[in-house]
Amino acid sequence: MKAWLALLRPGDWLVMAVGLAGVGVSFPLLWHGGTAELAVVKRDGTVVAELPLTAPRRFDVSGPLGNTVIEIQPGRARVASDPGPRQYCVLQGWLTRPNSIAICAPNHVSLALAGREGSHDSLSY
């Protein structure tokens, strides 16, 4: 170990520190990807509202079972309440990333977040 450390020169430590810091900084910045900018609310597959994720507000959508309430806050959105029996879309909680989606199937309502480019919903190799 000591023999290996002796191979490092002062500048090497500097480069390693800068590299490590760069990698550390890149994690939160890039891991989250783009930011979500728009909540797209659909009923029966047709868009009923496109709400910018800038100011807090609540939005009601009426479906066959009753009202689904969408709650918007800066940078995130959720289904606050839904008349569906199993509450999957409510339990999903806050959506923050582009292309994430909460579907309230019984009430025919979906809430999806869109970023600047919404063309892909998955990538595979």
Binding site: L7, R9, P10, G11, D12, L14, V15, M16
Partner: peptide, 16 residues
């Protein structure tokens, strides 16, 4: 300058 920056520096820069 080689006195300060050894092969490890070059290797890291090249890797990035």
């Amino acid at each position: 300058p080689r006195r300060a920056f050894g092969p490890v520096s070059l290797s890291l820069l090249a890797a990035f």
